[in-house]
Design a protein around this nucleic acid. Structure first.
Lengths: 172, 172
DNA sequence: GGCTCATCATTGAAGGTTAAACAAAAGCGG
DNA sequence: CCGCTTTTGTTTAACCTTCAATGATGAGCC
């Protein structure tokens, strides 16, 4: 009905997804929403915070001095500074993170993982890893894992907010 | 520091992710948050609604009579009925969806796509497909697409809210 | 110094999501 | 028909995210 090839006039009719592409796309949408919800529920239940907040604590725990500039943490977690600001405010209220002024740049703030925050992480990390394994890794062959990693990296690289290639694409 | 193998006493120490698994997992987290944000922003800008709401309209457009019971629509979109209730309320306020009583079940409600809603879909679908292509399909080989589809389907199936197998050729 | 522009981080308001509680109707077993 | 449980969909309040606006500092330039 509408797959006619030529019509260079005005509207540039779109290339709709093929049946096969639709299957892939829906699998993507379904898998990601189910997995995200699953992890959010697990962490909300066992750690009292959403998945993304947990990721912030992990990033801080791995950073030298267990601290990161707000902008760096936001880039690391792929979220806006605004969102991070709200998130850190909440984590600060929990006592898991504290803010510190940056001495070399008076605009700057460090988010610092507190001992209490580190402890929460230590207590909840095993359960979280188990959940990730059970929902994700345990269901895939090593080949599938490798393939998936490559594919997702391509997708992610295509969406980095410009400035990619500035520093190393991989962690470390 | 703590990867000693044996300690069958109490704590069942967790199997942490290997370096390779960590790379895959972070690629997953990064790709999905970047892509979700990307699509949300595109649709918010061009259609005035978040991605998930757009998906609801698509589901209704494809359903017979352009209508679906609330519970069916929620299952289709993989969201809770509560979330759907809020979403439909908003879409109704936009005039893109209306509710109708179900004659055979007085508790039931249909969400029905209005003509106006259908028109919004027709106007914004081309741009959305183009965005999906550009961010997703255009970057992957056919083999990668196939592989990804299979993998994601496995993940999704593992997380379906039970009730799978309901229609297996079982004794009734 | 003084000017301009970019960057850092936060804020407030509007909107979206979650979890628990609820009412109404349906199903089910006696 | 009667009680009991389940299903359906909504509601409320708390929480989270987004967007635009803001203040404050830094950087470059003359």
């Amino acid at each position: 009905m509408n797959t006619a090839p030529a019509d260079p006039a005005v509207a540039e009719e779109p290339r709709w997804l093929t049946d096969e592409e639709q299957r892939v796309w829906r699998a993507y949408l379904h898998a990601t929403i189910l997995l995200d919800d699953h992890l959010d529920r697990q962490l909300q239940r066992d750690a009292g915070m959403p998945h993304i907040y947990y990721g912030l604590l992990v990033a801080l725990a791995e950073a030298p001095g267990r601290r990161l500039r707000m902008t760096d943490l936001a880039k690391h977690a792929k979220i806006t500074r605004s969102r991070l600001s709200h998130a850190v405010a909440r984590l600060e209220k929990n006592g898991w993170v504290r803010r510190e002024d940056c001495p070399s740049d008076k605009r700057g703030q460090f988010a610092v993982l507190t001992d209490e925050g580190h402890q929460v992480l230590a207590q909840t990390a095993p359960g979280h890893v188990a959940t990730v394994r059970q929902a994700f890794f345990d269901r895939l062959t090593p080949e599938q894992q490798k393939s998936l990693g490559e594919i997702l990296q391509i997708i992610a690289e295509g969406l980095q907010p410009k400035e990619a290639g500035a520093d190393l694409p991989w962690l470390r």
